[in-house]
Design a protein around this nucleic acid. Structure first.
Lengths: 245, 245
DNA sequence: CGCAGGCTTGAGGTTCCTCAACGAGCGTGG
DNA sequence: CCACGCTCGTTGAGGAACCTCAAGCCTGCG
């Protein structure tokens, strides 16, 4: 029931989001998935699409050589599973226990012809996904490890209402596969960001963002405090403030 | 009542695309752009969308540190410039001299409400762009330089009707910025692929694909003939690759 | 002929990956 | 209760891949 203000951020839509949201009672089937459960498999028929009511879902693709790539994380309110073509290009898995609404795909045709507003909303959802996918392509194509992690943290922060104490429900491996890094590099960067006091890591699944602005500077300008810190400590091996030893 | 046509199958562009295509005479304005001309600028208002009639267009984003990323190349028949939000996130530039149809964005609203088929087609275009953007994210996130170049050549081949003699209208710099590599690395990989006889390079803007299957193997399984060739030539300088032993 | 721009190639350096080990948390069973 | 195995996260050492810097080449053009 707590589903209300999904994609109401941009004024681009004329406040008609009620139309789409109101459908979930009529058409949606509520489903529960345990952590790590598969919601649908890569290559299977795309007969449904989904909305996350609670929990987190990841879209995963596996390579022949064993590599894994995560295309997206879907949080409460997000829609997913709308694809072109009849075959899934990614599998969807529950990162945490989660609750989903499931919609039959074939009703889309009716929705579109009967409710132009819904058609517009569905299209807008895809356009937003497109913008996000393009943004990720630039991240993966042009950013170094520190920038990628910083952008991930900021993205997560936005998704959580600009919170500074972030909840990281996914594993380090998930983050690495999302950012095109190895788990080791991901770990190291997080450690370094904590060492330079841009973030705090109270426990592996929570991150306190201390300096949002500096994190933004990293992603935009490529300034790398990790490297900065390394050269500083090399030039001036005096112990940094804060760390025991 | 129910539309029997389920979902558009594989041949998505054909069949119902007449509706959308037939609009270009009524609504489209034909425009010409010289090579390297800017069609629209990053940050400008998105008041139009386009279809390429002839030539090639690139979508470009610039970073504060001077880095450049190409989100997409658009060839004859492609649509581009449909975005979420009112501001361009990328600029569009003519790779070659080109001819475009320009459509006013505001007519979309009318089209959608009056012609559900058109709404469906527009949405499908975005879904295809989305799939392609996600595919590129995995390429940039998980493939090494050789795999990226190979996948680029195959993509180009498909776009050109599975041709084996490819036309490369864009510069090496463009390719590098599209693949998230430097121009030097791009050059080197192409040279190596030619040395191992997977491709031929009659001139810098044409590439002959000699072994499509092997190129596919590179992208799918990660097998790297460049590396293979390097180690072989080190161990046995006269042996030619291509036959397993 | 000289110049400019795009392409190619080489040498050296940096980043990130690979391999390896270790520790913390946690459920299971003795 | 502790021992044990297991997963996940963290850290270090060394190497590979790619980038940076630099030079040389080719073609087209004034």
């Amino acid at each position: 029931m707590a589903v209300s203000h999904e994609f109401a951020e941009e004024p681009a839509t004329e406040g008609s989001s009620e139309t789409l949201a109101s459908l979930q009672q009529q058409l949606g089937v509520k489903q529960h998935f345990k952590r790590a459960a598969e919601i649908y498999a890569e290559g299977s028929q795309s007969k449904h699409w989904y909305q996350v009511e609670a929990g987190v879902v990841r879209s995963v693709i596996l390579f022949a050589d064993g590599q894994r790539h995560i295309a997206n994380f879907n949080f409460a309110g997000d829609y997913f599973g709308l694809e072109f073509g009849n075959r899934r290009k990614f599998s969807a898995e529950a990162v945490t226990d989660c609750v989903l609404y499931r919609y039959p795909r074939r009703t889309i045709e009716q929705l579109i012809s009967e409710l132009p507003q819904v058609a517009r909303q569905l299209w807008n959802l895809s356009l937003k996904d497109l913008a996000q996918a393009q943004s990720r392509a630039t991240v993966l194509g042009r950013m170094n490890a520190t920038m990628r992690v910083a952008s991930f943290l900021l993205e997560l922060s936005e998704r959580q209402g600009s919170a500074t104490l972030l909840d990281l429900p996914m594993s380090r491996t998930d983050i690495a596969d999302y950012l095109g890094l190895t788990i080791e590099t991901t770990c190291r960067v997080l450690t370094r960001l904590a060492e330079v006091r841009l973030i705090g890591i109270p426990d592996p699944h929570h991150i306190q963002i201390i300096d949002t602005r500096a994190l933004g500077t990293i992603t935009v300008e490529g300034f790398d405090p990790v490297r900065e810190w390394l050269s500083r400590s090399a030039a001036n091996p005096r112990r940094r403030p804060g760390t025991a030893e």
